[in-house]
């Protein structure tokens, strides 16, 4: 299982909580249901002509009712958790946020910074500040994803989509950014680096 999430960013924290919530109930449900199947299959296996009386009724509304009730409770709780995590996909109204333009092309990424500077295949962001990416595409449908931050948004020609994240500490992450939609023969190599720098380094770089 993917274990490369950065632990501290808020998007991954929210994501992790939600994912493990789903994973716990999902696993529990599969284990219970599959065990039931195997248990009944073995318990009621044919042992020649003898054995317990076979039922002939077809109605099983009791089981249906119980199934529906349990399903509805677990699934509504799951949906509630998802809605509670919508902060991950709603763009925060943070006046201090850094806006960076992302243009996908066959096959790479151009990042445009607030001072008009552009970098190819290198997303540099300040640490501990909300970063909002305005993602679009020059040619075909791409999908911009940073797995370790659990953020992803499609890059679509003629349309600007937004995503946000925040990384608390500086660091350099090679090939952390990948394209997640088939976009032609270069799809496999459509990667970019994520560089997180300190606020002072960012200010210096913006000034240069």
């Amino acid at each position: 299982m993917y274990s490369g999430f950065l632990a501290t960013p808020p998007t991954t924290a929210t994501y992790d909580y939600l994912f493990y919530w789903y994973l716990f109930f999902g696993t529990a449900a599969s284990v219970v249901v599959i065990s039931l199947l195997v248990f009944f299959m073995v318990k009621y296996r044919s042992r020649g002509d003898g054995g317990p009386e076979i039922v002939h009724k077809t109605e099983g509304w009791k089981v249906v009712l119980v199934t529906v009730l349990i399903s509805i409770s677990i699934l509504s709780a799951a949906e509630y958790q998802t809605f509670a995590s919508f902060g991950n996909i709603e763009i925060p109204n943070d006046p201090n946020a850094v806006h960076i333009g992302v243009q996908a092309f066959q096959w790479g990424w151009t990042f445009t910074y607030p001072d008009g500077k552009t970098l190819l295949n290198n997303l540099t962001v300040p640490a501990d500040r909300t970063v909002i990416l305005n993602i679009s595409s020059k040619d075909v449908f791409h999908s911009f994803g940073i797995s370790m931050l659990a953020v992803k948004e499609d890059a679509i020609p003629g349309k600007v989509n937004q995503l946000w994240f925040l990384v608390p500490d500086p660091g350099v992450y090679k090939n952390a950014i990948r394209c997640f939609e088939l976009c032609g023969v270069g799809h496999a190599f459509m990667v970019a680096d994520l560089t997180v720098v300190s606020q002072s380094a960012w200010d210096t770089w913006m000034g240069s």
Partner: peptide, 22 residues
């Protein structure tokens, strides 16, 4: 059962930020 339960994961737009295209 296994395929159906992974489908529930995909119904969440938040989790889909990790799973989409993977």
């Amino acid at each position: 059962i296994i395929g159906g339960i992974t489908g529930v994961f995909l119904s969440s737009p938040v989790l889909d930020r990790a799973f989409r295209g993977s």
